[in-house]
Amino acid sequence: MFKAMVEAFKNLFKPVRTINYPAQEISLPNGYRGLIEHDHEACIYCDKCEKVCPPGAILFYQHEEGGKEYHYNPWLCIYCGECVRACPKPDEALWQSETKQQSGVKEDGVNEGWFVWEEACKESREAYAAAKKERKPKMKSEEPLCVS
């Protein structure tokens, strides 16, 4: 009983273990695996990251003129970093930052919106492939801007 009281009294003066999080920052260690970030300029649009991503969190929308658009869903990403390891230009075109994704609300369309995007990207690919097939016999000399 006496020992317990001494222990309790000692605990009063020990440093607090709790981190007061929203008021006080949590220090993340170096190399925390956070969001995947993408540079529009440096990317060569080789689609390698899209192929290796286990959940399919990276999608490329195929424009009809040949350009591609990068889409990324941080709520679907599992932060394994496989896309960065597959990227031919890591740290320039695609890299893993140390920030965390903030929580989303209904308006972000986290799940619904992504279903729409998946459908749109698939359709755009098919449309582009069909258009390419049609164009090929007509003008053989002209190379398409970007090969998928």
């Binding site: 941080p74 990403c77 599992i78 932060y79 929580s103 609300v105 209904k106 799940n111």
Partner: peptide
């Protein structure tokens, strides 16, 4: 959210306590 209306989506796999507090 196929079943019930969801108000807050917390990202991360696995999500960290920091993000859970934010959420």
């Amino acid at each position: 959210d196929r079943y019930i209306p969801v108000d807050v989506y917390v990202a991360g796999c696995a999500s960290s306590p920091q993000l859970i507090i934010d959420g």
